[in-house]
Design a protein around this nucleic acid. Structure first.
Length: 449
RNA sequence: UCCGACUUAGCUCAGCUGGUUAGAGCAUCUGACUGUUAAUCAGAGGGUCCGCGGUUCAAGUCCGCGAGUCGGAGCCA
């Protein structure tokens, strides 16, 4: 790469002890003590304390250093010195200060703030140490995902974001006008297009933003989030589950290798992540229902008069958050639950030839209360079976004609899944809310900034 | 959509059974200090108590309606 500027990143400062360097960044904090002035300089890569001592640097420069407010932008030249009292082990003795701008009173002070205030100032909140660490972990997770697929024979095949209809026909979509062709909808999944792509290139993945207009109000939902969806020709459900485990193991180990500082900044218990090695746990839906009933985990059922009663968990009902949480409490590694009742799953999932009421579907649940991070399945590859599912769900056949074509011209067994990037980053980083792990979250009651 | 909680200074909050001039810490400004890292010490400024209506001699406090935010359920990644 070209040498764009002769400046040095703070994260590499320990290689320059005894040398004079220029750092560019922002003042994260300043404190004076008589003839001493301490400036914490942040450049995105790290934070270092810069020290000005009045008798050695002179009155004019000292007054300049003292005038710096929180988040003022500066270039500071100084000599790097090993300093045992500093958290990073180094400090900078100031030789010169170039002020780019003296910042106005900064809203985010070094004390606590509530989430509402911080979310209103998301554009500034991103500068804080914790948010910096989360964004670096997010970048590492995304790089791990790309490296994993690119290195294993997958090709990136982007899916369209504007689509003519609901992918799965269930969830609420964002609608927009589309010239003279009526309405278009923001994609809630790239999967159908990934299936077509897999028939062209074998093993593919799509990676992009996804939109759900559901009025979800929980700490694991966003209306706009990022999802990676691999799709593989000639993969059955077992291959699909193996791939999901390989991917998740790879992501966690990659973050462990490259984000030690960031995980420490988050106060993350590293041993919990080190335990994430294959094999993970697996359980069929039927086994899970038996486990729930053996362990007395009931289902809250609303009666017609509005009151709630608790009943044994009936086979055929989909799991909610309470069931998933109960199941995961026994596990320190992710668990895949597979072979769900077909009725609660999407129309394109293949039925289990051995159990016609069961779909070859799978969900991966992450430990520590992180919940579902992956949902996938083996796809229905039989033309007649798929068509009858489309008709049964009362989906418009015209819109799925091209999708049916894939079952007309060289249909093969194939499988895939979707992994939610933000849910994965939330789990690995230990962030307590999903809104912290995407730079500018989109939620039901927030679209600014 | 359903259930619950909250709203007082720029920020985080306290404010008792309704009672006289509205409280603290931080932030900001002024001053002191050669080792602070949530510095300390002394001083100063800073208020539509979310809005509207009601009860009362008296409302930040009680009641009603509305707004906003947060958490949970459902939906799912």
């Amino acid at each position: 790469m070209s040498q764009y500027h002769s400046y040095i990143a703070i994260e590499h400062l320990s290689n320059y002890i005894g040398k004079e360097v220029t750092l560019n960044g922002w003042v994260s904090d300043r404190t004076d003590k008589g003839k001493l002035c301490f400036i914490k300089l942040r450049d995105g890569s790290g934070i270092v304390q810069c020290v000005a001592f009045r008798p050695t640097i002179g009155d004019e420069l000292f007054e300049q250093a003292k005038s710096l407010t929180q988040e003022s932008s500066v270039s500071i030249t100084g000599t790097v010195r090993a300093e045992s009292r500093a958290p990073s082990g180094v400090e900078l003795d100031i030789v010169n200060v170039k002020i780019w701008q003296i910042a106005k009173e900064y809203p985010i002070t070094p004390k606590e703030h509530g989430t509402e205030f911080l979310m209103q100032h998301r554009h500034l909140w991103l500068r804080s140490t914790r948010q910096n660490a989360i964004m670096r972990i997010r970048a590492a997770v995304i790089k791990a995902i790309r490296d994993f697929f690119d290195g294993n024979g997958f090709k990136l095949m982007d899916s369209p974001i504007l689509t003519p209809n609901a992918c799965e026909g269930t969830s609420t979509l964002f609608e927009t006008k589309y010239f003279d062709l009526g309405s278009a909808y923001l994609s809630q999944s790239g999967q159908l297009y990934a299936e077509a792509s897999a028939m062209a290139l074998g093993k593919v993945y799509t990676f992009g933003p996804t939109f759900r207009a559901e009025k979800s109000k929980t700490r694991r939902h966003l209306t706009e989030f990022w999802m990676v969806e691999p799709e593989m020709a000639f993969f059955d459900l077992n291959d699909d589950m193996d791939l999901a485990e390989d991917l998740v193991e790879y992501i966690v180990q990659y973050v462990l290798q490259t984000c030690q500082k960031e995980l420490a900044a988050m106060g993350r218990d590293i041993s919990k992540l080190e335990a994430i090695r294959r094999p993970f746990y697996r359980m069929s839906y039927t086994e899970a229902v038996e486990w729930l009933n053996k362990n007395d985990v009931k289902l809250n059922k609303k009666q017609s008069d509005g009151s709630e009663i608790q009943i044994d968990f009936p086979w055929g009902e989909d799991f909610g958050a309470p069931q998933e949480e109960a199941i995961m409490q026994q596990f320190d590694k992710p668990c895949i639950i597979h072979r769900y009742p077909a009725e609660v799953k999407a129309f394109y999932m293949k039925r289990d030839p051995d159990q016609p009421k069961v779909a070859l579907a799978m969900d991966m649940l992450a430990p520590e209360g992180a919940g579902e991070i992956i949902g996938g399945s083996q796809r229905e590859d039989d033309f007649d079976a798929l068509l009858s599912r489309i008709e049964h769900e009362k989906l418009p056949r015209e819109a799925f004609e091209w999708f049916l074509d894939l079952r007309k011209y060289g249909s093969v067994p194939h499988s895939g899944f979707g992994l939610g990037v933000e849910r994965t980053v939330k789990w690995i980083s230990g962030a307590e809310h999903i809104r912290e792990v995407i730079p500018f979250p989109r939620m039901i009651y927030r679209i600014v900034p």
